[in-house]
Design a protein around this nucleic acid. Structure first.
Lengths: 318, 318
DNA sequence: CTGAAAGCGCTAACAC
DNA sequence: GTGTTAGCGCTTTCAG
């Protein structure tokens, strides 16, 4: 059997409560005794039993995150941020991939709720009602989605779209088209708002490579000189289809994405895209969750985005 | 406060032990009472408190996985497999990214050990000794690594290398070079074995895009007609460098990778590579872990790999 | 087949 | 400052 708090107490010649206090409320115990306890703890390699602790405190010291698609590098990046910040606080993170399934998403949160102190929900596809219900079950922080009364961290998609269009127009493009993502995705709606009817929207398409393949076909029919993809994965699909059709990017058509996933810099031509503060968003989400656990009211934070100009966009006159 | 087993017992007019049995040892209770209990459970929405349960059983019902680099799509794929199989068993999974840091890796396993029933360790860079020590701490399953006395699931890298070379030679290549990965990586060693000195090795290089950039530079000096990259990420870097140098792939040089990450099909030219049964490996790892928990001895399983021929390799005479 | 009771390891009143 | 004690919610003997 593992070493328990009693073993430590016995060897340090104090009571179990003193050991407990020395460990979790250092201020309440005399420095010398505390040191003695700590020495014994180190000597015995004592590790408090989390189950016992959480049984009594009601806290698990864990947090959960559910993402819609781990194959989209956008989410691993968020995950890293969450892990980093959570790790600093000694919190472990449960992870789940909902595979773009709204019901799965809700189900996963419900399952997690029982064993975490709170969950981070990335780009949920659920209705506001369901999300509000989930937030009722466990402290919730949304990423890229707002629901009244629920904390969230947003990445400014609207401004990102604005930056893309400004860039495109500065290159002389007048005829561009937006290749839309899932209608229920908050990011998509925000990008649409940023578009302000300055370009027609096609779609919705699946927010992945395959979706981009399809989107490119439709977009070609419009005669537009620039394609604005909902995200990088889709843009990669667009690039691939255009390459296959022997259409030169950016000579004939300019293409932009969203997210700045690592492959955006690796493909050719390298993709002009909007960088999202993914890792930062993960960290902020953990902070917001921590605040909620301390009793703070729900809060929303919006992080800035920034256009990254690479090789997939070019002056129309060239 | 949440509903407890006592609430259920009271309402179902049975003792708590009967409720407990109805839930976790259905055979020990009369069918009719069991049904009554189950009805009450459903009605009240009772969920057993995991902390209390694990305090007494010593099991957490969780498992952990640590991967070296979540940005390499290879690992999200493994993660998915793990999640899928674990989910079927009602097990949750803790996740951690060691960012290619051997000490971090060990530290993460130690931290996890306290709160999981076992951990899956992907492509560890640690020494056999450290891994054996970790395996002593908690049931361990290795992916892409063998250590005596520890369960592992392997993907047949040697055969993959063999398939690549056979393919290359069938295309008339005689002069090819292997761009090596981290010397401590088991996969790298296995690939080297598969090479059987039929080609020189360069490197080691970092197993990522940047590493590929560097590797391509060195490889070009050799005058080889085909570059075999340690993995796809590296191959992507190679492709990128060659494109930049205006060297045509596969017309002038053929390039192959390993892993068949999703981007291998998305880049241009699409990459000839060795498909790894990543998701399957994740599932098998969970199975092996479950077996160990049941008291089975350590076991190793090797999964087959398969060459996927795409557009980055071509007959040397074309 | 079912119930009573004894803890699992820890924290948090409550005393001193 | 420190010790004593009563549980947290559950499983598991042990009786019946």
């Amino acid at each position: 059997m593992a070493v328990t708090i009693r073993d430590v107490a016995r060897q340090a010649q104090v009571s179990v409560s003193t050991v407990s206090r020395a460990l979790s409320a250092p201020g309440l115990v005399k420095e010398t005794t505390r040191q003695r306890v700590l020495d014994v703890v180190a000597g015995l390699g004592y590790q408090p039993n989390r189950a016992a602790r959480s049984l009594i405190t009601g806290r698990t010291g864990n947090l959960g995150i559910v993402v819609p698609d781990l194959e989209n590098p956008f989410y691993p990046a968020v995950l890293r941020g969450v892990q980093t910040r959570a790790g600093e606080a000694g919190t472990s993170v449960f992870f789940c991939d909902s595979r773009e399934g709204p019901e799965t998403e809700a189900e996963l949160v419900r399952t997690m709720a029982a064993q975490v102190d709170g969950v981070v929900l990335c780009s949920p596809l659920q209705s506001d009602e369901v999300i509000a219900e989930l937030a009722d079950l466990t402290p919730l922080v949304l990423i890229n989605r707002t629901v009244p009364g629920v904390s969230s961290v947003l990445m400014d998609s609207g401004s990102g779209m604005d930056q893309i269009i400004t860039h495109l127009e500065s290159l002389g493009h007048k005829d561009y088209v937006y290749l839309g993502g899932p209608a229920t995705a908050w990011s998509h709606q925000r990008r649409l708002q940023g578009l302000r009817d300055r370009a027609p929207m096609l779609g919705p398409f699946e927010p992945n490579f395959t979706g981009g393949l399809t989107a490119a076909q439709e977009a070609l029919k419009t005669g537009a000189t620039a394609f604005i993809a909902y995200n990088d994965l889709m843009a990669l699909g667009v690039l691939s289809h255009l390459a296959e059709q022997n259409i030169k990017v950016p000579a004939q058509i300019s293409v932009t994405g969203f997210d700045n996933i690592i492959y955006a810099a690796m493909c050719s031509p390298a993709l002009t895209t909007v960088a999202m503060p993914t890792e930062e968003a993960g960290k902020v989400a953990v902070d917001l969750l921590a605040a909620r656990l301390e009793g703070a009211p729900p809060e929303s934070r919006e992080l800035p985005t920034k256009l990254v100009i690479r090789a997939s966009t070019r002056n129309i006159r060239c």
